[in-house]
């Protein structure tokens, strides 16, 4: 395909600021991380080298595999839960709320917390889940349990709960976007043809919602896989994911080792994203 030369010139001129920012703060940092991942480190400093020690150590350690496994587990469970909740909420807003004003209002209610601090939203779970928190005291007074549950806070449970709490937004918005674009006459046609509610949902709505689901999936998977704050806050250092592994190494000034882990994490994330992008054309679906 041949493109007019003027398009290319104007295009790059307009995209120049964007390109500069991404070149300096995205591409260069990635190159730097790749370079440093081959460096060596003493207790206090790092020195340029070209050695594979960091990678050898990384792949030779059973901790790495366990932590990567744990990261995938978090990502998949969060994905399933956010998809279930997100689709249900979006479906309700798109097909059961009848006026546009209410649709906008209720959608705003779902999105406002996204613009507030994640860290505060994590802290907010403490009075709920703590040993003497609301959940425990309610269950105790109802007689469901006779001593406080210890696994509510600082556990895998609280990590997953927070992931779902923070990331369902990223499922609701793209799915709602695709659902609102579905031509209502398609659903009427299916109903006239004798399809039941579940059949319409499965054979008409779900296939048409696929692009939104894919975009939501990309967001949720990459955010959970790259996270380290949620796990740091909500697990009480009981469990780890790859992000935690990196931030621990950074804390110990072991930058080369942190860089090697980062390279592996980045490759993993990009492979997942590339796979998902084959299933959806993001630019067309926005």
């Amino acid at each position: 395909m041949s493109l007019p030369r003027s398009n290319t010139a104007t295009g790059w001129l307009l995209a120049a600021p964007l390109t500069l920012v991404l070149a300096f703060f995205l591409v260069l940092p990635i190159i730097m991380i790749v370079i440093v991942s081959f460096w060596g480190a003493t207790e206090f400093s790092i020195y340029p080298a070209f050695q594979f020690d960091n990678y050898k150590f990384l792949f030779g350690s059973s901790v790495t595999w366990a932590v990567f496994g744990n990261t995938f587990r978090y990502a998949l469970i969060t994905w399933a839960l956010t998809l279930g909740i997100g689709f249900t909420v979006a479906y309700f807003l798109a097909f059961h709320v009848r006026t546009l004003t209410w649709q906008i209002t209720l959608a705003l209610i779902c999105t406002v917390p996204f613009w507030t601090s994640n860290i505060i939203r994590m802290i907010s779970w403490i009075p709920f889940l703590g040993r003497n928190g609301i959940a425990n005291s309610t269950l105790l007074s109802m007689g469901v349990i006779d001593q406080p549950l210890e696994w509510l806070l600082f556990s895998d449970f609280s990590v997953m709960l927070t992931f779902v709490h923070i990331n369902t937004f990223f499922m609701i918005v793209p799915i709602l976007n695709t659902l609102l674009r579905i031509d209502k006459s398609l659903i009427e046609a299916a109903r006239d043809g004798g399809a039941t509610g579940p059949q319409i949902l499965w054979n008409v709505i779900l296939p048409l919602a696929k692009p939104g689901i894919m975009i939501g999936t990309i967001f949720v998977l990459t955010l959970v896989m790259g996270d380290f704050t949620t796990v740091r806050f909500m697990s009480g250092s009981q469990s780890a994911n790859v992000g935690r592994l990196i931030s621990n190494d950074v804390g110990l000034l072991q930058y080369p080792s942190a860089a090697a882990t980062s390279v592996v994490l980045l490759c993993t994330v990009l492979i997942v994203v590339t796979g998902l992008l084959r299933l959806v054309d993001i630019r067309k679906e926005l």
């Binding site: 991380i33 790259g226 992000g243 990196i246 942190a258 980062s262």
Partner: peptide
């Protein structure tokens, strides 16, 4: 590149820019 910028784990940006 934009998609990469969106999906790259935040800590990598932090680490990379810090190192540079």
């Amino acid at each position: 590149l934009i998609i990469t910028s969106l999906t790259i784990p935040s800590i990598l940006i932090s680490l990379g820019v810090g190192l540079i």
